[in-house]
Design a protein around this nucleic acid. Structure first.
Lengths: 97, 97, 97, 97
DNA sequence: TACATTTAGTGTCGAC
DNA sequence: GTCGACACTAAATGTA
């Protein structure tokens, strides 16, 4: 390995250091840019998702309920029941049931 | 419009109802599945981002530093945008736009 | 009224203008600072609320459920039922009920 | 500890349960009411803030401009804090802290 | 009223 | 395994 490939070289750390802390500008920049690019793609997809909700809304659906539906599909039945029953306990304790 | 295209048809709601709540199962299913598919893609990209952080870490970089750097760059960008937007508001308030 | 008291004076607008657009620095600063001060107080209270949730958590309560309970107390019965029933319709349409 | 102090006592849960869900009605009620009281205070302050915007508007100011200004000042402050924090991270990464 | 912006809350993940 | 940081969702607020 050349010194240029080892970020630790920048600070003169030797191999024993527990917290190598390279901040070689070039590699850092590369990582940051790759991350930013992927983040943009992620945002684009999020935009597509938002578009679907808008479309659903435009055809008369309630987006709030769709979101809840999607969330419920992700959650397993046991967890669902658990939350439901706990809520009942609390409401009962407050005389709201 | 056919009944299938009108989500309200399912529950027999008429046009006067202020809060149409009916839904066509097919369309709802389609929306939900498209959302779930895109969400998976989004997760995949998030996975790629995580991989980059892992890679950076593996070559001796401090991920905390990278995260902070990314965050700051984003903030700077937002800040710039906000300043431009503020200028527009001022100009508008002064009747110059 | 002196010119200094009239924000419109700055821009030379006359009384007819529909959108007076004063940006007299002094008054603007005063408004901004009063708003910022109150916003801080609001944040402080929000902090107190968070503390209560932490305390509740520390004594074995489930904060998520407490939040839902508080929300339900705010929401009237009719709205509650409305949301519940709409969700059921959606879940039924997807064969989840 | 008395039963009243142990939220789990209500449902007879023993210490082994992984998710204790029991609650003491009194404590729960106390938490909820304290939260609601503070929330009211928070709303009152929000009302004061709204009043200032109304007052500003009444004297010819453009509230949108004021809001933007407040937002920008907040963003600047956050930005400054973030930059200081980034410096610390860099120094730490370099083993200088 | 509906639309956009802002803020609070929740889930997720990595660090210690 | 708790803690903190981040991303996303949901609610509240203000505007048009």
């Amino acid at each position: 390995m050349t010194a240029a490939e080892n970020p630790r070289a920048v600070t003169g750390d030797n191999a024993k250091k527990t917290k190598p802390a390279g901040i070689s500008a070039d590699k850092l920049k590369s990582y940051v840019e790759r991350i930013e690019k992927l983040t943009e793609e992620k945002q684009a997809i999020q935009g597509d998702i938002s578009d679907i909700y808008s479309e659903a809304k435009g055809t008369g659906y309630d987006t709030r309920t769709i979101r809840k539906t999607v969330a419920l599909r992700k959650m397993n039945a046991a967890d669902r029941a658990e939350q439901e029953s706990l809520l009942e306990v609390y409401l009962h304790a407050l005389g709201m049931l």
